[in-house]
Design a protein around this nucleic acid. Structure first.
Lengths: 194, 194
DNA sequence: CCGAAATTTCAGAATTTACTGAAATGTCGG
DNA sequence: CCGACATTTCAGTAAATTCTGAAATTTCGG
């Protein structure tokens, strides 16, 4: 591995972290390298810097492309493919969340919906279905929230995150300002303990 | 594997999903099984239902305990250990997030802080450091937000999530109500482009 | 279309991770 | 402190994943 020490530290760390995420070490390293690089890199650059085989890099880049995590570029008068990460780190986060949702949450939701349609054949299955419904509803709430904030532009998103739970204070204020006399506890809570 | 079909579908799915999360198949299956089970199960129960070896179950349970994902219980007049997941699914989510933060985010932040202290020895390293600072700041924002909402009780958390970005509307309203005349930054849209 | 350059594919080797059975250790009632 | 039951450890094996080099394919200028 042929890298400035500072870069190498980061690249090695991300290789290890990759493993914990079901992403293999080389893929993690390639991504870390591209993330830190000012200029886009071609496959041969990556081979030299990481000291892995050309074919390994090819497969790693293919995987990163499948995840939409790298952009492919070309230089005039150069046939080779150059790769880079988005300059905007928030764009990276958005892609990461989007892709993980697609690969992990969506298939799970499909399965949950299917299983919840079936008729339970025993008390045990009835209880299991109840648990699955809890999970289904949880995921629905979370993905709904995600779909919503995902549409915000970055600045507003940052604003929201910076506020954190202080939003709560504002909500309370709102409640005090606009009490709807007829409703005791807000609609949400009714369904809660069904 | 000896399970009601409905339960088996779910257990197999979570085994597979586990792989994508750096958790091994058996551990995923054990957890899924416990999650669906009305009663706590002992190791032998799990062996019978999943059809894996006793020692494998022992290791899987140990791992789940290290993640704080299962509670250990005892029955009167029975020396065996019984395991269960929390009844409250929100508690499960909180634990999961907490543990992943501890294992993934915290060590990464430590490394980023260390590397950011060092003196860059070249333009390349300077740029790399800049990128790392972006990541550091991003993580700081996200963990700050998390630390904040994590303290909310579940009901308020659900309320917040249900609102999603509609909170934005309320923020705008707040801004209109309480403009601080002297502050230049008070209008969000200034900084927007750059 | 030819040939050089670039990339991809893929079978096998290397490495890592998961799993098992057997043995060791721990725990508790009597 | 014994003995039955329960759990853990661990070395060896099985299985899965990652990685490589060689060959195949694609791309493109001339």
């Amino acid at each position: 591995m042929n890298l400035p020490p500072l870069v190498q530290t980061f690249v090695l760390h991300f290789g290890e972290m990759g493993s914990r995420w079901g992403i293999n070490r080389t893929v993690g390293q390639i991504y870390a390298l591209l993330y830190l690089s000012k200029e886009p890199l071609n496959a041969e650059d990556i081979v030299e810097r990481l000291g892995v085989s050309r074919s390994n890099v090819s497969m790693g880049l293919k995987e990163l492309q499948a995840w939409n995590l790298v952009r492919l570029q070309h230089r005039p008068g150069d046939r080779r493919d150059y790769f880079a990460t988005p300059d905007d780190i928030w764009q990276i986060v958005r892609t990461l969340v989007e892709e993980r949702k697609k690969r992990e949450i969506d298939p799970t939701m499909t399965l949950l919906r299917e299983v919840l349609m079936q008729e339970p054949a025993s008390a045990e299955e009835r209880h299991a279905q109840e648990r699955m419904r809890e999970m289904h509803d949880l995921f629905e709430l979370l993905t709904g929230w995600y779909a919503d904030v995902q549409r915000l532009d970055t600045e507003r998103l940052v604003q929201l995150l910076t506020l954190g739970s202080k939003v709560q204070k504002i909500l309370e204020m709102k409640d005090r300002l606009f009490v709807v006399p007829g409703s005791k506890k807000s609609r949400r809570d009714d369904a809660k303990d069904k």
